[in-house]
Design a protein around this nucleic acid. Structure first.
Lengths: 149, 149
DNA sequence: GGTTACCAGTTCCTTCACGGAACGCAGGCG
DNA sequence: CGCCTGCGTTCCGTGAAGGAACTGGTAACC
């Protein structure tokens, strides 16, 4: 719902939440990521209210995360596609899947699998340090004040 | 707000959102991650309504992400701490910071910096394939049906 | 010993966002 | 013509967020 605007806070988490923090937004992003890109498809897949879906899509397009484009001219029909900015947001989804698989998947196992297209490996991604290449977790990080604080 | 419960969906993203998808929850997690762990501290730092903060903290404790513990007995005072489950959730925050720094930080630069404690490197984490060790992004992944679908 | 301050909530009221269903509209199609 | 599909828009009732006041137990100050 977010009556308080997060976009003005001096915090990258808050500013990210301003874009995809509202209810449903990450699931809409996921649908488009996996190829469910049209209004009625998304609405049917998620069971979201059409009104809210309209609002979310409009906002995600305004934010530069999605692109609305016409895929037939007559009749005029539209679909939504990820921009580069939006595609990078999907990395967030990978981490959510990893956590959800680890902590909330029942004994049935994870509902979807992820395969690295380049090497064929099926499993989760890892967070690694860009410098020393060691696996990193949030607990291995020190948070320091930055220039924009 | 989330009147629709995400926890029952066969989707790890939805189930993750069921835990931290509500407004403010990721920011509360961040505060506790950086050491702001008491009720009034969090309330003052975020400017969140006390009522909502109580609801969120209760839910995060119920979900096993936070632990409420007494740090003085007289007067009885409580603070909140991450569990293992909650600490792993903080990896999500790292990715949010990375995206927020890249796409929403003004020319002032990022408000905080992250340093890898082990090697001293200041910067962002990378997503890599656990098998081939190459950098991975969401666009390099194929999504397949899994056992729990 | 009375007042003030602190900490961790709880209660109450108003406003606004969500959910759900109906409606609109434009363009094929039989 | 009447119906269907795709993509929304409008309307209404409910309930969650915001905000401020209040509680209650303890300690510190004057």
């Amino acid at each position: 719902m977010q009556r308080t605007k997060f976009g003005d806070m001096a915090c990258s988490i808050a500013r990210t939440l301003d874009v995809i923090g509202e209810p449903w937004s990450p699931l809409i992003l996921r649908d488009i990521y996996v190829g469910i890109s049209r209004f009625d498809q998304i609405q049917g897949d998620l069971g979201i209210s059409r009104k809210v879906l309209t609002e979310r899509l409009t906002w995600l397009v305004e934010s530069g995360v999605l692109e609305r484009r016409q895929y037939t001219s007559r009749p005029p029909r539209y679909e939504y596609a990820l921009t580069g900015k939006g595609a990078e947001l999907c990395d967030l989804l990978l981490i959510m899947v990893r956590w959800g698989d680890r902590w909330t998947a029942g004994k049935a196992g994870p509902p979807v699998l992820h395969r690295h297209r380049a090497c064929g490996h099926v499993g989760h991604v890892e967070l690694r340090c860009a410098n020393c290449n060691q696996p990193v977790h949030a607990t291995d990080i020190d948070v320091l004040p930055g220039p924009g604080s």
